[in-house]
Design a protein around this nucleic acid. Sequence first.
DNA 1: CGTACATCCTCTAGCGGGTAGAGGAGCAAT
DNA 2: ATTGCTCCTCTACCCGCTAGAGGATGTACG
Lengths: 140, 140
Amino acid sequence: MQGSSIGKVAERSRVKIPTIRYYEQIGLLPAPPRSDGNRRLYGEQDMRRLSFIRHARELGFEVEAIRTLLNLQDNPNQSCATADEIAQARLVEVEERIRSLLALKAELQRMVEHCQQGRVAECRVIETLSDQTHDHGRLA
Amino acid sequence: MQGSSIGKVAERSRVKIPTIRYYEQIGLLPAPPRSDGNRRLYGEQDMRRLSFIRHARELGFEVEAIRTLLNLQDNPNQSCATADEIAQARLVEVEERIRSLLALKAELQRMVEHCQQGRVAECRVIETLSDQTHDHGRLA
DNA sequence: CGTACATCCTCTAGCGGGTAGAGGAGCAAT
DNA sequence: ATTGCTCCTCTACCCGCTAGAGGATGTACG
């Protein structure tokens, strides 16, 4: 097994080349061996690791969380409580984000629906943004 | 009218002091007059502008969009078509984001529900992330 | 064998939207 | 006059990449 070029791995994993190098730099992906001409040579293991990272990023896990998850993956004898916690925490974040975006959506819809396409002077969009009386339940 | 200090304005608008200075630097907020001791002195107009900006940022508008919206607000005789477009575009973005987060939520729930709190070796969280066969409908 | 062109290398700088901290000056109350 | 707060400017940093410069290497074709 001589290894694949960074370009091939990028294509197969759908992670861009500079991003792969970046992951190596921050220690998410081990530095692979090099060819005579100093080019990176990746194996199947690296492909799997990259896919793992991409999938985790798509789910919105932070790099530090992914680092922890990868460490767990590398030591399969440990308890998976930590992995579960990380996933739970992300789930809570996502749920909160959805709630908040639904509220935003409602407000944007109100703005857009009431806009009569007239002058800015009576534009509902601008008006709503200017309105001082919105708390978003931040207090209380 | 002698003007309020940056601290007072920050408190009232709930925009942090460095952020206010940052907005001045990028030209969202006009540079206010200064006191003898070189301190910024803000008026009611500035307070309103800051609230506008904060509200728009809470709705997720980008700084460039806010710049445009503020320009419109400053020229109330123009058509509000642009404002409407910006708000519509943001609405579409938010709707897409909600859809995508709902999919994430479902996947995270599946992961978390199936985790039996055993060893990592059979952890559903790690397993799911390792799974190569997920396309997220990115193609087609 | 030359040459064109793709792919790769390292390195530095930039994005958005701020945040943090150093080092100093001003101001208000005791 | 001293304490302690607020403010000033300036630079650097955060995340997760992305872009570009300037150069080396690899491959395909004539």
